[in-house]
Amino acid sequence: MSAGTRKIDVTVTDVVEVNELVKRFRFERSDGGEMPTFSGGAHTVVEMRDGDVTRLNPYSLMSDPRDRRAFTISVRRDEAGRGGSLYMHRQVRIGDRMVLSYPVNLFALDLRAKKHLMIAGGIGITPFLAQIKQLSATGGRFELHYSVRTAALGSYAGELAGRFPANVHVYHDDQSQVIDLARLLDGQPLGTHLYVCGPKGMIDWVIRTATDHGWPAEAVHYEEFLAPQSGKPFEVTLASTGRVITVGEHQSMLEALEAAGVDAPYLCRGGACGQCETDVVRHEGHFIHRDHWLTDDQKTCGKKIMPCVSRFEGKSLVIDR
């Protein structure tokens, strides 16, 4: 069922504080074997066993895709989140055993592009780190425009700018430096593909501006993982067995299904991939759809839900599981 979610047992072999907000983790296979290959833009789902809660959070792989020794991720601490990043920051130590999923890429480079134009905001830099390693090894042409809050919080900005001075442009919010997007987009040679990863506002701004400037949708790529949001607890009934499962306040519906031993499909756990799409058999109440997958029509017709990020409020919900 959970296609693409084969697991790898790993050991944490390095934890580095990148700056005040970001920590980097390195994972190697516990059995000493090689990690699977991946392509720049791929993510892994990290299993976190925090007491009796299991969290599964996706993180972009930032290491060199050709390096089979280890996977590396960077995690930004999110005080307001549901606790996954805090767990990584506070609990995870060198030598810990953890479980990662095989890599999945929902943000791949289009290798037909003549040039890759990358726009990153904050921790959105991580998939680009792997993509840049991939492109620099294969002679691909790229340009990165990276927006950070301050120089001190600009994860990897110094390294990137030092290594690729002609390709990397860093913008500091605290110095009121902003990406001149309209000009940047108009000046790109034909065949350029655009990639954006960062906060929602930035992604929307880039997509909207590109559309207004005549960029084809096929040449605009973005990645936004939505973290599931807390909400009122609700109950969901499985049509196959009639079993009733309660989704807790700080749990996603997918997590509740998993905790109840239901093998529900997923890939991204962030409302982007479509893998967890679930048919609604009956419902009385209303959906809080938060995914990027269902069309507006599908969202209003009430026949589908993406349990990784979406919730329900009301009397009853029966799903086809």
């Binding site: 987009l185 108009d186 790109q188 034909l190 065949g191 350029t192 400037h213 005549g214 960029w215 040449a219």
Partner: peptide, 10 residues
């Protein structure tokens, strides 16, 4: 014309 063009060309 194509080789001189920029993105945004229709």
């Amino acid at each position: 014309a194509l080789s001189d063009a920029h993105m945004g060309l229709q």
